[in-house]
Amino acid sequence: MRILIIGGSVFVGRAITEEALRRGHEVTTFNRGRSGVDLPGVEAVRGDREVAEDLDRLVEGREWDAVIDVMGRVPGIVDESVRRLNGHAGTYTFISSISAISDFPAKPCDDDSPIYECAPDAGPEDGDYGTLKAGCERAMEAFEGNALIIQPGLILGPYEDVGRLPWWLDRISRGGRVLAPGDPDRAMQVIDVRDLATFVLDRTEVGKADRFLVSGVPGNTTYGDWLAECRAVTGSDAEFVWVDDRFLLDREVAPWTEFPVWTPGGPEFAGVWLASSAKALAAGLTCRPVAETVRDTWAWLREVPPAERSFKWHGIDPEKEARILAEWA
């Protein structure tokens, strides 16, 4: 197949590109060349999807069997890309997010769950991440071919640029007393970026309009097992100190970000780990053990010098962690 990947050099896009090349597809990537390095073997087209002239230059004289849009975040911009690519590809695969579902994370959800109200031409100021992703999904209605929408859940794995699992690996590798938030028996649900990429390519090759919630296998790890795997692969002497949810919230610790992927109990997060991937699993989604994801992410992270490790919006300040540990003691 001839595949255009919008993005293609960072985390999810990189994994999809790598899998497409492994399968022998002809791959074109379209990005600004600022966030990552294109993999050898692709036709790299430099450009900004927000610039009409760049989109015109991309499509001029080119056709693909499929487009995979990894980077769409603003409905109006996705809408323009869709319209420019009409007639140049048979399938348009859009990587959305579970966050587009209006019931998430308060309630369990599946492929039929409602998404937020958001216009397909909305701008960046018209909503938050999840709302805008819902608008991007509606922008797909303008595609004159097979529109395939993928809604991933929590994605982990090598080359993660968000900094969730990498932050925990980095912190635990340094050892000592490590503040572990909440309940170690709290079940989680994660998907390896490589398993997501495999499923995306499988369904793109099928070339059928559809929608899939792709969030892995429910309960495929617990928070305690996840952190224990981090300690095992790093060879750390870390001592986990499990601290109560309420104690952390009273000290203004931000769920999900200061301790990556920590969600306290309560109605606000009641459905966060209860998404159903039954349809995707029935369609061929396979998920490797979470231990393998942790191991391979650490193998990659060890190649990144500590001074160059970027965790973006994730991770608690060391002084704040130490202060809370002292108060808890």
Rank of each mutant, 00 (worst) to 15 (best):
D48F: 07
R295C: 05
P306C: 02
L154M: 14
G219M: 00
A66G: 05
G76T: 08
D161P: 00
Y129G: 11
L285V: 11
L281W: 03
D65F: 01
R57P: 05
G90K: 15
E137L: 10
R138Q: 13
S102V: 15
I5L: 10
K312S: 10
D128M: 08
R32V: 10
V214R: 00
R174C: 00
G61C: 07
D121E: 14
P40G: 09
I77H: 07
S276G: 05
W313T: 13
T93A: 14
D317E: 15
A139K: 07
F104Y: 15
R73E: 15
D317I: 10
G13Y: 05
L165V: 06
W300Y: 07
I98V: 14
A122D: 09
A291H: 13
T222W: 04
G175W: 04
D128E: 15
T221N: 04
T198R: 15
Y92A: 04
V74P: 01
I101H: 01
R164H: 04
A119N: 08
A139C: 11
D192G: 03
S35N: 13
W262A: 04
T29D: 10
E63P: 00
P255Y: 08
K312F: 09
A291F: 12
P260H: 07
R22T: 13
G284M: 11
S173L: 00
T263W: 14
A254D: 08
L281V: 15
D65Y: 02
W298R: 07
V206N: 01
D48E: 13
R288D: 11
V70R: 02
G157M: 05
V193F: 00
R186P: 00
V59E: 05
I115C: 12
D161V: 06
V45Y: 08
W242G: 09
D56C: 04
L325R: 15
I68S: 04
W313D: 10
G265C: 05
I68K: 04
A106N: 04
N146R: 14
R251S: 10
D210W: 07
D296M: 09
E141A: 15
G47K: 03
P152E: 01
I68A: 02
A307I: 04
T257P: 02
D317W: 07
E117R: 15
I155L: 02
V214C: 00
G265S: 13
E268I: 12
C136D: 10
P114D: 10
D121P: 00
A119K: 11
G72F: 02
E160M: 02
G271V: 10
A106L: 04
R323N: 13
D202T: 12
L165P: 01
P75T: 09
P255D: 05
E53K: 12
L249M: 13
P218C: 02
S310A: 01
G315N: 06
R186K: 14
A66D: 06
